[in-house]
Nucleic acid binder design. Sequence first.
DNA 1: ATTTTTTAAATGCTCATTTAAAAAATTTAT
DNA 2: ATAAATTTTTTAAATGAGCATTTAAAAAAT
Lengths: 210, 210
Amino acid sequence: MNANIAYTPYSRHSGAMARTRIRDIRHEELIHATVTAVHKRGYAAVTMAEIAAEAGASAASINYYFGSKEKLMEATMRRMLTMLKEAQLERYAVAKTPLDRLMAVIDANFSDRLFTLEQCAIWMQFWANAPYVESLSRLHRINRARVTSHFRAELRSLLPDAHREIVREALQSYMDGVWLEAAQANEPLNPAAARAEARRFTRLMLENAA
Amino acid sequence: MNANIAYTPYSRHSGAMARTRIRDIRHEELIHATVTAVHKRGYAAVTMAEIAAEAGASAASINYYFGSKEKLMEATMRRMLTMLKEAQLERYAVAKTPLDRLMAVIDANFSDRLFTLEQCAIWMQFWANAPYVESLSRLHRINRARVTSHFRAELRSLLPDAHREIVREALQSYMDGVWLEAAQANEPLNPAAARAEARRFTRLMLENAA
DNA sequence: ATTTTTTAAATGCTCATTTAAAAAATTTAT
DNA sequence: ATAAATTTTTTAAATGAGCATTTAAAAAAT
């Protein structure tokens, strides 16, 4: 009856069984539907009914699983942030040098999975709403801090102190700016081209600053 | 009775007199109130009544002067774009070299008048809404094209073909990215510092290629 | 007089959220 | 197993608040 009660991760009758399946499926479906629906209509304009329809469900079921429109948006952004983090970790796993790792952070941002019109749109709505919604603001700070710290770590061995911070800030601003502009596009994005450009830009910055 | 009829720019009873004053005053006041109110509450959340209250007027008078909330937002953004253009022209007037003019474009973006929390917030709302509102989308394209063409013109004499476009895109993305991040801040911005950083970044980009 | 400006109040619509009841799935008892 | 009981999931419909916009009439300006 109440979606907010705490569940143990194991079913109650046998030992280490799988946890309630439907719950996870619905979360997945509804978050995906949110991304699609927000892309189509914008966060301000999209209605619970539209999101629900996108998932083949009813508006009431969104509230059953997420509690409110705001919490749904928060869960959706949490998912986006997790995807970004994972994309980066995947690339870290095969990176050998500090430069490889620096490029891993950058490539992750423009990976095929993430750098799509739909997701650019969601991020744009996220940035626009974060200043007015504490939970989103918090997510933004956390993500920003994570990326900053990775950049700092990798740049430490690539650049002298004097230029390091300016280059780091430039890299982060550049990435945000590219996303911002991509959110205005109406043809499909080209992640491979974006990665190539970002790498060229990065090399240019490093060369000149070294 | 109807705000949409065409007015001649001159009063009807004497020769070349000042045009209807109140109209201009109200436009000014209401646009200013819009910037303030949107900064406080976000475009999605702000109501006509709140904007009106900010200007000491009634919601109905906004519709009398602008026709609708959407048209008010459009007029507000038009004003922002004009301010940006003017800030740039002011600096062009005293620029001697291509590098001066390049810096003029950049400095304009971070001028004391424009690079404020309030205006960053408005731009953020603009970017988030442009994909869903044709009139805003159009403004975005126009502004983007204008800045692009200025950058191209000035970079032509500063950089060889090979690097020019990548540097231009990097500069534009950088500026957008700085604005995007600034929109998340909650302390007052420091335009002078932003200009200094932007100049350092620009020099870094140009050094190698020149 | 006539036109422009102003607003209080009315209108009408959209929507998030809640409610209440049914349907489906799962657990317990037989 | 099978049926009964219990819990989880689903949604149609109700609720109620919020809001942009319109109307109609008054006030101010010309």
